[in-house]
Protein backbone atom coordinates (compact mmCIF):
# COMPACT_ATOMS: atom_id res chain seq x y z
CA UNK A 1 0.00 0.00 0.00
CA UNK A 2 1.06 3.53 -0.54
CA UNK A 3 -0.16 4.66 2.83
CA UNK A 4 3.16 6.20 3.61
CA UNK A 5 2.58 8.64 0.78
CA UNK A 6 0.35 10.58 3.13
CA UNK A 7 3.31 11.26 5.37
CA UNK A 8 5.40 13.07 2.79
CA UNK A 9 5.51 16.63 4.16
CA UNK A 10 3.72 19.09 1.97
CA UNK A 11 1.83 16.47 -0.07
CA UNK A 12 -1.92 17.02 -0.08
CA UNK A 13 -3.96 13.85 0.44
CA UNK A 14 -5.67 13.89 -2.95
CA UNK A 15 -2.47 13.80 -4.95
CA UNK A 16 -0.76 10.52 -5.67
CA UNK A 17 2.79 11.86 -5.37
CA UNK A 18 4.92 14.99 -5.29
CA UNK A 19 5.42 15.11 -9.05
CA UNK A 20 1.70 15.19 -9.67
CA UNK A 21 1.23 17.91 -7.10
CA UNK A 22 4.03 19.99 -8.54
CA UNK A 23 2.77 19.57 -12.09
CA UNK A 24 -0.72 20.61 -11.01
CA UNK A 25 0.64 23.69 -9.29
CA UNK A 26 2.77 24.69 -12.24
CA UNK A 27 0.05 24.25 -14.85
CA UNK A 28 -2.36 26.02 -12.55
CA UNK A 29 -0.09 29.02 -12.17
CA UNK A 30 0.58 29.28 -15.88
CA UNK A 31 -3.13 29.15 -16.61
CA UNK A 32 -3.69 31.81 -14.00
CA UNK A 33 -1.09 34.01 -15.67
CA UNK A 34 -2.90 33.41 -18.95
CA UNK A 35 -6.08 34.82 -17.44
CA UNK A 36 -4.04 37.76 -16.18
CA UNK A 37 -2.78 38.42 -19.68
CA UNK A 38 -6.35 38.49 -20.96
CA UNK A 39 -7.30 40.74 -18.06
CA UNK A 40 -4.62 43.32 -18.84
CA UNK A 41 -5.20 42.64 -22.54
CA UNK A 42 -8.51 44.47 -22.44
CA UNK A 43 -6.76 47.59 -21.22
CA UNK A 44 -3.96 47.27 -23.75
CA UNK A 45 -6.65 47.09 -26.43
CA UNK A 46 -8.24 50.27 -25.10
CA UNK A 47 -4.79 51.89 -25.03
CA UNK A 48 -4.14 50.97 -28.66
CA UNK A 49 -7.47 52.28 -29.88
CA UNK A 50 -7.40 55.56 -28.03
CA UNK A 51 -3.79 56.21 -28.85
CA UNK A 52 -4.63 55.88 -32.51
CA UNK A 53 -7.67 58.11 -32.00
CA UNK A 54 -5.97 60.80 -29.91
CA UNK A 55 -2.26 60.77 -30.81
CA UNK A 56 -1.70 64.37 -29.66
CA UNK A 57 -3.47 63.89 -26.37
CA UNK A 58 -1.29 60.89 -25.65
CA UNK A 59 1.87 62.83 -26.43
CA UNK A 60 0.79 65.67 -24.16
CA UNK A 61 -0.39 63.27 -21.50
CA UNK A 62 2.84 61.34 -21.36
CA UNK A 63 4.70 64.57 -20.60
CA UNK A 64 2.72 64.81 -17.40
CA UNK A 65 4.39 61.66 -16.11
CA UNK A 66 7.81 61.69 -14.50
CA UNK A 67 10.26 59.66 -16.54
CA UNK A 68 12.92 59.64 -13.77
CA UNK A 69 10.46 58.20 -11.24
CA UNK A 70 9.07 55.72 -13.74
CA UNK A 71 12.59 54.79 -14.75
CA UNK A 72 13.61 54.32 -11.16
CA UNK A 73 10.65 52.04 -10.61
CA UNK A 74 11.54 50.06 -13.71
CA UNK A 75 15.03 49.45 -12.37
CA UNK A 76 13.66 48.59 -8.93
CA UNK A 77 11.31 46.00 -10.40
CA UNK A 78 13.92 44.44 -12.65
CA UNK A 79 16.28 44.06 -9.70
CA UNK A 80 13.47 42.61 -7.61
CA UNK A 81 12.95 40.01 -10.33
CA UNK A 82 16.61 39.10 -9.98
CA UNK A 83 16.37 38.77 -6.19
CA UNK A 84 13.21 36.70 -6.62
CA UNK A 85 15.00 34.40 -9.05
CA UNK A 86 17.81 34.01 -6.51
CA UNK A 87 15.24 33.19 -3.83
CA UNK A 88 13.80 30.44 -6.04
CA UNK A 89 17.32 29.15 -6.69
CA UNK A 90 18.15 28.90 -2.98
CA UNK A 91 14.80 27.36 -2.15
CA UNK A 92 15.66 24.56 -4.54
CA UNK A 93 18.99 24.08 -2.80
CA UNK A 94 17.14 24.06 0.48
CA UNK A 95 19.20 26.92 1.92
CA UNK A 96 16.74 28.52 4.28
CA UNK A 97 18.78 31.54 5.35
CA UNK A 98 19.68 32.67 1.86
CA UNK A 99 16.14 32.02 0.73
CA UNK A 100 14.82 34.27 3.50
CA UNK A 101 17.42 36.91 2.71
CA UNK A 102 16.48 37.16 -0.94
CA UNK A 103 12.78 37.10 -0.19
CA UNK A 104 13.34 40.00 2.20
CA UNK A 105 15.25 41.91 -0.52
CA UNK A 106 12.39 41.29 -2.92
CA UNK A 107 9.96 42.54 -0.31
CA UNK A 108 11.96 45.72 0.20
CA UNK A 109 12.24 46.42 -3.53
CA UNK A 110 8.52 45.78 -4.03
CA UNK A 111 7.75 48.22 -1.24
CA UNK A 112 10.08 50.82 -2.72
CA UNK A 113 8.16 50.52 -5.97
CA UNK A 114 4.88 51.15 -4.21
CA UNK A 115 6.25 54.11 -2.25
CA UNK A 116 7.51 55.73 -5.44
CA UNK A 117 4.17 55.02 -7.07
CA UNK A 118 2.44 56.64 -4.12
CA UNK A 119 4.41 59.85 -4.62
CA UNK A 120 3.63 59.84 -8.33
CA UNK A 121 -0.08 59.44 -7.64
CA UNK A 122 -0.04 62.07 -4.90
CA UNK A 123 1.52 64.54 -7.29
CA UNK A 124 -1.22 63.88 -9.84
CA UNK A 125 -3.93 64.39 -7.27
CA UNK A 126 -2.33 67.64 -6.14
CA UNK A 127 -2.40 68.98 -9.66
CA UNK A 128 -5.98 67.89 -10.17
CA UNK A 129 -4.93 65.45 -12.82
CA UNK A 130 -6.97 62.52 -11.55
CA UNK A 131 -9.44 62.13 -14.42
CA UNK A 132 -12.65 61.95 -12.37
CA UNK A 133 -14.94 64.73 -13.59
CA UNK A 134 -15.26 66.48 -10.25
CA UNK A 135 -11.54 66.65 -9.76
CA UNK A 136 -9.98 66.91 -13.19
CA UNK A 137 -8.95 70.53 -13.55
CA UNK A 138 -5.47 70.86 -14.99
CA UNK A 139 -3.67 74.15 -14.61
CA UNK A 140 -3.65 76.44 -17.61
CA UNK A 141 -0.40 75.34 -19.23
CA UNK A 142 -0.44 71.77 -18.18
CA UNK A 143 -1.70 70.26 -20.40
CA UNK A 144 -2.39 72.68 -23.27
CA UNK A 145 -6.02 73.66 -23.04
CA UNK A 146 -7.24 72.29 -26.30
CA UNK A 147 -6.14 68.78 -25.38
CA UNK A 148 -7.91 68.61 -22.02
CA UNK A 149 -10.40 66.01 -23.12
CA UNK A 150 -7.86 63.82 -24.88
CA UNK A 151 -5.42 64.01 -22.01
CA UNK A 152 -8.21 63.00 -19.68
CA UNK A 153 -8.64 59.84 -21.73
CA UNK A 154 -4.90 59.22 -21.52
CA UNK A 155 -4.97 59.76 -17.79
CA UNK A 156 -7.75 57.28 -17.08
CA UNK A 157 -5.88 54.69 -19.08
CA UNK A 158 -2.75 55.56 -17.08
CA UNK A 159 -4.53 55.31 -13.77
CA UNK A 160 -6.40 52.15 -14.61
CA UNK A 161 -3.37 50.32 -15.97
CA UNK A 162 -0.91 51.37 -13.30
CA UNK A 163 -3.57 51.08 -10.61
CA UNK A 164 -4.34 47.52 -11.60
CA UNK A 165 -0.63 46.84 -11.73
CA UNK A 166 -0.12 48.37 -8.27
CA UNK A 167 -2.97 46.23 -6.97
CA UNK A 168 -1.12 43.19 -8.26
CA UNK A 169 2.00 44.43 -6.49
CA UNK A 170 0.12 44.81 -3.23
CA UNK A 171 -1.34 41.32 -3.53
CA UNK A 172 2.16 40.10 -4.44
CA UNK A 173 3.63 41.62 -1.29
CA UNK A 174 0.89 40.01 0.79
CA UNK A 175 1.69 36.62 -0.76
CA UNK A 176 5.40 37.28 -0.28
CA UNK A 177 4.82 37.76 3.44
CA UNK A 178 3.03 34.42 3.59
CA UNK A 179 5.88 32.73 1.70
CA UNK A 180 8.42 34.31 4.04
CA UNK A 181 6.46 33.11 7.04
CA UNK A 182 6.40 29.59 5.61
CA UNK A 183 10.13 29.77 4.86
CA UNK A 184 10.79 31.01 8.37
CA UNK A 185 8.88 28.03 9.74
CA UNK A 186 11.10 25.79 7.66
CA UNK A 187 8.33 24.45 5.46
CA UNK A 188 10.46 24.38 2.34
CA UNK A 189 13.10 21.87 1.49
CA UNK A 190 14.89 20.44 -1.53
CA UNK A 191 11.87 18.19 -2.05
CA UNK A 192 9.13 20.71 -1.44
CA UNK A 193 9.58 24.24 -2.67
CA UNK A 194 7.00 24.73 -5.39
CA UNK A 195 5.15 27.60 -3.61
CA UNK A 196 8.33 29.71 -3.85
CA UNK A 197 8.76 28.82 -7.49
CA UNK A 198 5.11 29.50 -8.35
CA UNK A 199 5.14 32.79 -6.50
CA UNK A 200 8.27 33.65 -8.46
CA UNK A 201 6.31 33.15 -11.71
CA UNK A 202 3.65 35.55 -10.48
CA UNK A 203 6.24 38.12 -9.45
CA UNK A 204 8.00 37.98 -12.81
CA UNK A 205 4.67 38.37 -14.57
CA UNK A 206 3.85 41.53 -12.63
CA UNK A 207 7.31 42.77 -13.45
CA UNK A 208 6.86 42.10 -17.16
CA UNK A 209 3.58 43.97 -17.22
CA UNK A 210 5.41 47.00 -15.91
CA UNK A 211 8.08 46.60 -18.58
CA UNK A 212 5.28 47.14 -21.10
CA UNK A 213 3.58 49.92 -19.17
CA UNK A 214 6.66 52.06 -18.76
CA UNK A 215 7.41 52.74 -22.43
CA UNK A 216 3.75 52.82 -23.46
CA UNK A 217 2.77 55.40 -20.87
CA UNK A 218 5.91 57.32 -19.89
CA UNK A 219 8.00 57.31 -23.04
CA UNK A 220 5.28 57.80 -25.66
CA UNK A 221 6.03 61.50 -26.12
CA UNK A 222 9.62 61.45 -24.99
CA UNK A 223 11.13 61.87 -28.43
CA UNK A 224 9.11 65.04 -28.99
CA UNK A 225 10.75 66.80 -26.07
CA UNK A 226 9.28 68.21 -22.90
CA UNK A 227 6.83 70.53 -24.55
CA UNK A 228 6.95 72.93 -21.61
Amino acid sequence: MSDHAAHVPGLAHHFVNMEQQKEAGTIGMWLFLLTEIMFFGGLFLAYTIYRAKYPDGFLQGSHLLSVPLGGLNTVVLIVSSLTMAMAVYYSQLGERKKLLGFLALTLILGSVFLVVKYFEYAEKFQHHLFPAHWMYNPAADHPPTQYHGQVQVFLWIYFMMTGLHALHMIIGIGLLLVIMFMAHKGKFSKQYNSPVELFGLYWHFVDIVWIFLFPLLYLTGYHVGGGH
Binding site: Y54, D56, Q146, Y147, G149, Q150
Partner: peptide
Amino acid sequence: ESILDPAA
Protein backbone atom coordinates in the same frame (compact mmCIF):
# COMPACT_ATOMS: atom_id res chain seq x y z
CA GLU B 1 -15.43 66.16 -35.07
CA SER B 2 -13.78 69.47 -35.88
CA ILE B 3 -16.75 71.46 -34.60
CA LEU B 4 -16.88 69.55 -31.31
CA ASP B 5 -13.20 68.78 -30.83
CA PRO B 6 -11.17 71.19 -32.99
CA ALA B 7 -7.82 69.98 -31.68
CA ALA B 8 -8.34 66.39 -32.77
